[in-house]
């Protein structure tokens, strides 16, 4: 029992990271019906911005995270304007292929300028300390990741539920033409969505840097795919779904590597994907409206 609790606690920080990335997938899908396969790579760029902020500017990790979020918000808006906006009326498959192109572009541009070598956060960036609580041990890393992720999700939820911009985002997601008739500028609203989703991914990138201590130009691929699965699991386009999906995936993955074989941990996500697609393609929170993934 204690062992199980321990595994779940271990899974929480990983789940929080997946949840943050999944949010970007789901928000973008909600508003332009595009699976933004470059999203994991935006996270990678965020990790690098965070890394340089710490190693070259000597900032602490929180400031690094804020820099990364600002940089990636801008990056997300640029990607949308340059790559996706011209394809607003194109077929979905054209947009999807473009997304994969953007993904490769980000990966190989990073490799070109920064070498494929992995980088290690400087010593003392995040002095690790373990705490023991009722027999369960947690590190301050996990606590930091978990709390900052929850904080970001609360802020996001507030924006989406209560601000004018958030309401416009929901209106555009539901019905673009009707939103236009309200006087909502759809292009700006889409930009804001990319900015927010990319900023969350950047935060997740810095967290992954803290979690594993190393980063590399291809680090976005696997977490990106897994977060996509998390978004589908929760119901793509549904914000709380992405959060729940992320946590479920993170915890399951930790359980599998803790109890079973850690070689299988990466298979968990794809097993889940196959299962959802077979059982309930609309995901946990999805209504069966015939909209498919």
């Amino acid at each position: 029992m204690l062992e199980l609790m321990q595994q779940i606690v271990n899974g929480l920080s990983l789940g929080a990271i997946y949840a943050l990335i999944a949010l970007g997938y789901t928000m973008v899908y909600g508003i332009i019906k595009l699976i933004n396969f470059a999203h994991g790579d935006v996270m990678m760029v965020g990790a690098y911005v965070g890394f340089f902020s710490v190693s070259m500017l000597g900032t602490n990790i929180v400031v690094a995270m804020i820099f990364a979020m600002l940089a990636c918000a801008l990056l997300g808006v640029i990607i949308e304007k340059v790559a996706y906006k011209p394809l607003r009326r194109a077929t979905r498959i054209a947009a999807l292929i473009t997304a994969i192109g953007v993904s490769l572009f980000l990966e190989y541009t990073t490799i070109f300028f920064l070498t494929p070598q992995q980088r290690i956060f400087p010593q003392g960036t995040f002095p690790v300390q373990d705490y023991s609580l009722a027999g369960i041990s947690v590190s301050n890393k996990d606590i930091f990741i978990f709390i900052s992720a929850i904080l970001l999700m609360v802020i996001l939820q507030f924006i989406v539920k209560n601000t004018k911009t958030g309401k416009a985002m929901r209106a555009v997601s539901e019905d673009k033409d009707a939103a236009v008739l309200m006087g909502i500028n759809v292009d700006n609203t889409i930009s804001v969505t990319f900015a927010i989703g990319s900023a969350l991914a950047a935060a997740a990138g810095v967290m992954i840097g803290v979690y594993y201590n190393t980063i590399n130009p291809l680090m976005g691929i696997l977490p990106g795919l897994k977060a996509f699965v998390a978004a589908v699991l929760g119901g793509i386009g549904i914000i709380p779904g992405a959060m729940v999906g992320g946590f479920i995936l993170g915890i399951l993955e930790t359980l599998v590597s803790g109890y079973g074989n850690s070689l299988y941990r990466d298979a968990v996500a794809f097993g889940i994907l196959i299962l959802i697609l077979l059982i309930k393609p609309t995901g946990i929170f999805g209504k069966n409206t015939g909209e498919k993934v």
Binding site: E174, D175, D177, A178, L181
Partner: peptide, 13 residues
């Protein structure tokens, strides 16, 4: 302003 055909209210709001 327009009241569009088929109402087009934002169902999830």
């Amino acid at each position: 302003s327009q009241v569009p055909e088929g109402r087009r209210v934002f169902a999830g709001m």
